[in-house]
Amino acid sequence: MSEFEKEEKLKAQLEDKFGGAISDMIIQRKDRVWFEIKAEQLVELMNFMKTGMGFNRVSTITGVDEGEKLGAFYHLTDENGIVTVRAKTPRTDPHLPTITGVFPGAEPYERELADMFGIKIDGLKPGRRYPLPDDFPTDQYPLRKDWKVGDAYPEEKTSPATEAK
């Protein structure tokens, strides 16, 4: 048996169930698996991961600006390891389905994706924005790579540069 028995088993089960929807599966090391899923099957996958594979928590969702596409990395955890599920959506019209139906604890992380990256989360119940202030411009997304501090608060353009020397 290989060194990564548990991880190989997970990989086989997922490929068996989701087939072509899954790509770029990497077993990085023990207890670390990464793969990409098509956005349409995200909720179905999350359901399977929770009920079938015993991953009972989304520890956090990392938003990543990859240029043409915006990525959301769902870090699912069980007792022993982290499986990172990547979902990608085009920058021009970013949409992802909510996973709060499966993992209610993911709500603040999804709001963060919406606020910081401008990814529209379909099905997320209405509520206050998080983490940006209520008066922050709604068409600016600070964690996108093309965003600079002065975009939202022009007066800060004159403040000392924080770039590393």
Partner: peptide
């Protein structure tokens, strides 16, 4: 309601 202490540390970390 959260977010009263958001300091933009993740953005700052990138630079």
């Amino acid at each position: 309601n959260l977010g009263y202490n958001h300091r933009g540390i993740e953005k700052a970390a990138e630079s």
